[in-house]
Amino acid sequence: MERMFLTLKLSPSSLIATSNTLFDNNFMALTQEEQTDILIIGGGPGGLACARMLAENGKQVLLIERKPAIGPKVCAGGITWSGLLQHVPDTLIEKSFPVQHIYTRQQHVLVAEKQPVVATVNREKTGQWMAAKAQEAGVKIFTDTHALKIKNRQVVVRQGTEIKNIEYKQLVGADGANSLVRRYLNLKNTLSGVGLNCILPIQRDNMEWHLLPHLFHYGYAWIFPHKENISIGAYAPKTAISTKQLKQNLIIWARSRGITVPADQIRAGIINFDYQGYAFGNSWLVGEAAGLASGLTGEGIYPAIVSGQVVAQKILDPNYPAHELARMVKKQQRHHKIIHYAQRAPALCSLLMNLLVLLLRVKILDFRMLEMAD
């Protein structure tokens, strides 16, 4: 993410200063027939990053979010040094980890760096901070507003019990893996994964990654400590294992780590990594709506923000080259290749996992090669 912000020429002070005003999350009413230059559907990191940049450059921007509040999502809350970590306020960082603990059935490897490799943030607080920055720039944000249908440069929405229309000149779909805008563009999702997450009031010191093919195939499980709790969960591409089995295996594995995960507290989220483009005339896709998550790791926050900023740049200047997005797509394609090899030789999956960890141990492979950031 640092290259994204540098490319956009945002000053460090404006980037890392905590907002002086809280995001106004009160219910706001749309007029019956609303008009805007740019309509953004989805109030996640990608949509908010896109909205802020456009508004800072004088564009009229309206953002709608279906949830009652900005921020909450099924998410482990991990951010990387190469991606987001260097560019969020210190007040948002809950814990940072210069050492990563990586486990297979045969190995336990410590990956240590001078700078924190990964840190944890509260996703809701981070979203609220980004929303406040967007509002300061002039973005109009409407929560609890559901996009129902797209037709003739209009989006039909439901706000409360009322049905209303929003006319737009440019439409940005930042509405996640089940994107309405993506469906409107007739793009299918054939490559996706499932992330299962549970937040528990437990204190742990180590950030752990567990590569256990007998339980998670070519996915993994994690324990991410936060300030007052932990995020514990598992991720795997849908082609590897059913969601039901993944959930059962998560509970079994957690018990082996001395943690009881209540089945009814596990939350699931779909992760879309079926990238087929982001620019479609006056319609645009951002983040998971564009299929820009990593199929290997499930990482999505960094790709969402990068693509949100790129879409803003392209709307402002159609000749903008978008090199940062091209680099990220190449990284995603490398992740696809690893998945492809694991699918072709499932019996060798454990061997591949152990080889990967061995390469990390002897420093032949850099941990950052597994990130979506440059």
Rank of each mutant, 00 (worst) to 15 (best):
M1D: 00
F5Y: 07
L10I: 14
S14W: 14
N20K: 11
N25K: 11
M28D: 10
A29H: 04
A29P: 07
Q32N: 08
T36I: 06
G43S: 13
P45T: 15
R52L: 14
A55I: 12
N57K: 02
I64E: 08
K67C: 04
A69Q: 10
V74I: 05
G77Q: 10
T80P: 00
W81R: 11
L84H: 00
L84V: 06
H87K: 01
P89T: 11
D90L: 10
F97L: 08
Y103A: 08
Y103W: 15
P116C: 09
V117T: 00
V121A: 04
G127F: 15
W129H: 01
A131S: 05
A132D: 04
A137K: 07
D144N: 08
T145Y: 15
Y168S: 02
G176I: 07
A177C: 02
L180C: 02
V181I: 01
Y184Q: 15
L187D: 01
N189R: 11
N197E: 14
L200N: 05
M207C: 12
L212K: 09
P213F: 10
H217S: 13
P225D: 05
K227G: 05
A236C: 12
K238G: 07
A240L: 13
L250I: 05
S256P: 03
S256C: 05
G258K: 04
G287Y: 04
A290Q: 04
L296I: 15
E299V: 06
I301D: 04
A312L: 11
Y320L: 13
P321L: 11
L325V: 02
A326Y: 15
V329Y: 07
I338L: 13
I339R: 06
Y341I: 04
R344C: 02
A345S: 03
S350V: 06
M353L: 08
N354K: 01
N354C: 06
V357E: 00
L359M: 08
K363T: 14
D374N: 08
